[in-house]
């Protein structure tokens, strides 16, 4: 059974059609890129999969949760399995890097020592160790982006939905981040990465490529982790 299955999903913002009849699926531990120009519906699709926008039309299953039949009380459980990295980071500027990365671990009720160890591990992996106790409003855009990534990866979720994760990173940092993603992927975390950076899909061999145009899926390129629809 597909880990992520999207069937005939459409979404409207008022009269504007943001997604129309989107179909795709992804196996557990798979990696997919969604490409397309700005306004193509990439962010909308990720937000629907994260339960951030309601499913207006169609069917979707994410990490075993049916978005059509899911109770409101199940939403936190879905979000513990499927973490979304936003383009605008969504971190807390007045809190430190440590506090931001620790947030999802604390929400899961992990003991302090384990939280501290995991945060230190993520800070090391994403080159944030030096700024771990800095408030996030003192960080650069690239550092904030890495904080958002560290927060998502810290809990080792089953699925990461990433919206333009390299949008604020220089090429070297983008390369390092994709390396971190690749490592997490080898440990079983599935990824759906929305990007308009044409170079990124080439960095993950075997990744599935989905191309959106004006809300419609116009092309798919099958990698080794994709599933037939």
């Amino acid at each position: 059974m597909a880990f992520v299955r999207v069937r005939d999903v459409s979404y409207r913002f008022g009269k504007r059609l943001a997604l129309e009849g989107v179909n795709f699926s992804l196996a557990k531990g798979g990696f997919a890129f969604i490409t397309g120009p700005s306004g193509a519906g990439k962010t909308t699709l990720l937000r629907i999969l994260h339960g951030d926008l309601p499913l207006m039309h169609g069917h979707a299953v994410v990490a075993g949760f049916s978005l059509n039949a899911m109770a409101r009380s199940e939403l936190p459980l879905l979000r513990r399995e499927a973490c979304l990295i936003f383009q605008d980071y969504r971190i807390l500027p007045e809190r430190t890097v440590f506090e931001n990365v620790a947030l999802p671990l604390e929400v899961r009720g992990l003991p302090r020592a384990r939280v501290a160890a995991r945060v230190a591990e993520m800070a090391g992996a994403l080159d944030l160790a030096k700024v771990a106790h800095e408030r996030c409003d003192n960080l650069s855009g690239g550092e904030r982006q890495r904080v958002a990534v560290a927060r998502a990866l810290a809990v080792g979720p089953q699925l990461i939905l990433a919206d333009e994760p390299t949008g604020n990173l220089d090429p070297d940092a983008a390369l390092r981040l994709m390396d971190v993603f690749r490592q997490a992927n080898t440990h079983g975390t599935a990824f759906i990465v929305a990007t308009h950076d044409e170079r990124l899909p080439g960095m993950i061999p075997g990744a599935r490529l989905l191309h959106l145009e004006a809300g419609r899926l116009t092309a798919t390129a099958e990698g080794g982790d994709g599933e037939d629809d």
């Binding site: 994260h50 936190p76 969504r90 500027p93």
Partner: peptide, 16 residues
């Protein structure tokens, strides 16, 4: 509000 939104995003329950 920002903190509430972020906590929801990381899967915090209402009481938390």
């Amino acid at each position: 509000q920002a903190e509430i939104d972020v906590l929801r995003l990381v899967g915090a329950r209402d009481w938390y």
